[in-house]
Amino acid sequence: MMQNVTIGQYFPGNSFMHRLDARLKLVLTIVLIVMIFFVRSILGYVSVAVLVAAMILGSKIPFKMALKSVKSMWLVIVMAFVLNAFFVKGETVLVEWQFIRIYRESLLRAVEMAVRLVLLVMISTMLTFTTSAKEITDAIESLFRPLAKIKFPVHEMALMMSIALRFIPTLMEETDRIMKAQTARGASFDSGNLFSRIKDMLPVLIPLFISAFKRAEELALAMEARCYHGGDNRTRLKVFKLKGIDYLAMLIIAAEMAFIISGI
C-alpha cells in the first residue's frame, strides 16, 4: 500500500556520485540549484541539462529512475506552467480566445519555469539517490559545527535528524502492516468524505503512535545502556576528507558557474 515511493530514496552504490564527499555534494547541490535561477540563455539551460545528464551517468542509476522522480512532481510542474502561461501579462498576443489571452513572453516564461523545476527536481534527487540519510546528517553536522561556538546544539540537532530519518522507513513499514491488519478487519481507507476518512484512520494512527513511543523508549534505553553521551569528545567512524574526485567535481561546478554568470 505504501510501496513505490521513490522520492528521497537512497540507492546504495559505489559510483562517482556515491563516492563524492557528502558535505561537498550538499554544498554543490545548493550552489547548482541557486545557479539555475541565474541562467539567461538557452545555451545556459542546455549546459545545466548536460551536467545533470552527466550526474545521472556518473551515479550509475538508470535514467528511468531519475525521470520517475520528475513524474511524481508532475502536478507542481504543470501548475507552474499553467499559472505562468495563462495569468502573466506580456506584450505580443499569440492566442486569443474569449477571455483567454496567451502572450508570447508569458509562454516562454512558462516553459522556462517548467524547465527550471524539472532540473531542480532532478538535481536534488541526484543528491538523495546517491547520499544516505546518515551521510547527509553527518554532512550537515559537520558544516554547522562552527555554530557550536555560540552554544547552538549542533550535535543534538543532527542526532535528532538522523534518528527521525532512520525511522521513516520503519514507520512506513509499520503503517503498511497496521493498515493491512485493519483492512482485514473490515476497515476501508479510500471511501467517504474527509471527516469519515479521518475517523477511519484512527485505527491505524493510534497503534502507530503507541508503537512509535515504544520504539522511542526502547531506543533511549539502548543508547543509555551503551553509555551514550552528548557531542563533546565523540569521535566518528567515518571522517570526512576531500579526495581527488571531490576537487574534480568542484572544478566542474566552478566552470559551470563561470559559464552561467558570463551570461552567454
Binding site: 491488519a181 482485514a184 473490515g186 503507541i210
Partner: peptide, 17 residues
C-alpha cells in the same frame, strides 16, 4: 471476502486501538 477470510498477523496485539 472480508467476511469469509479472517487474518491474524504476526504480533496482532499491535493492532489494538
Amino acid at each position: 471476502l472480508r467476511r469469509q477470510v479472517g487474518v491474524v498477523f504476526q504480533y496482532p496485539e499491535y493492532q489494538l486501538f
